[in-house]
Amino acid sequence: MKEKAIAKEKVCGRPRLRNLMPGITCPGCHYGIIIRLLCEVIDEMGIEDNIIGLAGVGCSYAWPMTFDIDFGSCPHGRAPAMATAIKRIHPESVVFTVQGDGDLGAIGLGCFMNALLRGEKLTTIFLNNAGYGMTGGQMAPTTLPGMRTTTTPYGRDPKTTGYPLHAAELVATMKSVAYSARCTVHTPANYQRAKRATKMAFKKQIDGIGYGFVEFLSACPSVWGLSPVESLQFIEEKMLAEFPLGEFKNVDSID
C-alpha cells in the first residue's frame, strides 16, 4: 500500500502587507496585533491599491514604515485634516487615520471634531492605551481615575484632572458618523470581533455613507508598569469597567 505524502500548509505567519521592518514597540504591546488585524482586513477587502493611511504622532509614528501600502505621517493631531485634503483630491481612494489617545484626544481633538462636523467620509482607528506611551507615561485624556502615571504620581484625581474621554460614545452622537465601535484585541475572540468592526468601518466609507470610527483598547505594559500577561488582566478588569465594548452607532443611511 502506497503511503500518502504529508505536506505542510502554512496556517499563519507574517501578514502579506506587513513588510520586513522589525517592530519598534515594547514587548507585550498590542500594536503589533492591531497592525496584523489591519493588514488582514485590507487584504481581505482587496483595497490595498487605493488605500491611503495617515499616522499621527505617538507610538504609531512608525506605522508608515511597516505597511506595504501608501502611508503618510502627520504633525501632532492633524491626521484628520490631512486625510480630508487627500480624500477631497482623490475621492475614489479609501483614507484612514491611525491615532493614539494623546494624538486624537488631547492635541488633535479640535481637528478631529471639525472633521466630524464637516461630514467627512473617513475612517479613524483610535488606539486607546490610557496614557502617553512614547513620551514616557504622562497622563492622557483616557487615563483611568486613580491610575498612577508620571504626571499623576498619586493617581488621577477627577476633582482636578477630570474624567476619562469616551471617544466612541462621543463620536456616536455626531450626525455625520455612520459607524462607531469600541473593541479590544486582548483575547482571540475579541480579535475576530474587532476585525468585523474594522471591516464595517471601512465599508461605510467605501459605500459613501459616512464616518467610520473604531476605538481599540490596547495594552501598554511599559506605562502601566505591569508584565504583558498582567496587562491582559488589567484590560479585562479595569479598562473594560470604564470603557464598555460594543457598537454605539451603525446606520445604513444618513438623512
Binding site: 504529508i6 505542510k8 496556517v11 507574517r14 514597540t25
Partner: peptide, 12 residues
C-alpha cells in the same frame, strides 16, 4: 505582536 511564530498544518 512580533510575527515571530509561523504555524504549519500537516495535510495529506
Amino acid at each position: 505582536p512580533e510575527y515571530a511564530i509561523e504555524v504549519y498544518k500537516y495535510v495529506e
